[in-house]
Design a protein around this nucleic acid. Sequence first.
RNA 1: GCUGAGGUGGCGGAGUGGACAAUCGCAACAGUCUGUAAAACUGUCGCCCUACCGGGCUACCCAGGUUCGAAUCCUGGCCUCAGCACCA
Length: 396
Amino acid sequence: MDAIEELLTRGVENIIPDKEKLRKLLMSDRKLNVYLGIDPTATKIHIGHAVPLRKLNAFAQLGHNVTFLIGDFTALIGDTSDKESERPVLTSAIIEENFQTYKQQAQKILDFSKVKVRHNSEWLKKLAFEDIIRLAYHFSAGDFYSRELIKKRLTEGLHVGLHELLYPVMQGYDSYFMDTDIQIGGTDQTFNMQAGRVLQKDLRNKESFIIANGFLEGTDGRKMSKTWNNAIWLTDEPNEMFAKVMSLRDELIVEYFTLATSASMEDVADVKKRLVAGENPMTIKIELAHQLVTELHSKTLADAAQKDFGVRFQKGDLTQANLPTISLPPTLSSGATIIEAMMEGNMAESRSEARQLVKQKAVKLNDTLVTVPSEIHTFKTGDIIKVGRKAVKIKK
RNA sequence: GCUGAGGUGGCGGAGUGGACAAUCGCAACAGUCUGUAAAACUGUCGCCCUACCGGGCUACCCAGGUUCGAAUCCUGGCCUCAGCACCA
């Protein structure tokens, strides 16, 4: 698959106005102005957020004029696309801090040396009220009100601030100011990105494009999100990341290869073929996990994580696994109940909970089920306490 | 400022004097099953004591009060939302 075809299809849900027109533009060899805007509120990125970042990076690698735009000014309003309520206003210090945190993670995917980083306050701040009125003229309030979330809020009698109407106007102006050819974003951004097309057309008589990326499903199949606790974070430790990938539903393997790794499309097609041919999905999932950890950490760490996964989960041999260690305080070193040891190891939030876990047959000491909470054990170095999926090693 | 609605466990949302540690749904956790899958099924899910039975304590925005007894009633306060008014 050639680079252009990949740009047009990989992880792409929708292209506006038209895929073939965009293809023609991409073939023209013109250096295009491409940008992705981010809202400087979220500081922790998961691999779903990374999908548009990958797309942006792909454009950067091909030598286009790529901008990573920080919506510091639009943050004054807060995007209405993905939240059902208004956002708190952020100070510029916090915005900058957020960006630094963001960048630290994002640079695992996006080569910042090839992109320009800008803040939209640079131009939005300078607009006079008159300018805003003229800009607002290009948009219809009806479009805004008919957006699903806005409609919902209105029918529920919730507050919808007038300033929220200005969000798409501002984003549209971003696009116009930078003379954008292509905007990248999630499908949830489609409405806002449309605003950019409107201004480019009305004010500059220029056709511009939107590439809307699809969403990556979380480890449980729902949309990846913090609240569902089903996200794989860019900052996840190698072992944890590996394990999370392994707990994916099999049906998600191809999607993850496509959206969350930079494996070539040929490789992805190959994976598809192998799955259809009936190869054990687990084997392929291991490859996926290895690939992902390699990209986000390193090959060495991926190898280690795979090995750890093998001994720890597949063989169930915890003695070989790389477990966190805990040491018991002197008061408990001569003897302690399993409950006390669990509390020391942070394996339960309260003694009640620890007791519950024992009752539920979740607790093992050196592979032997512990059934009596009050029994006194003399722990020694190397003892392994296993609680459900978690395990720790005792160190004296 | 006025009028109305409302503040319950991680979230949603019941309950409107005793049967409430608080229905139910979601999330979470554990077990069975497996490929550490997923799905399904079962169980747990305020804190503390207890091998099981069971017991104690603290809780429904805050502070008082009424009552044998309050998440539920009364008084005061704080906060949220909406509509209206006023000011700019």
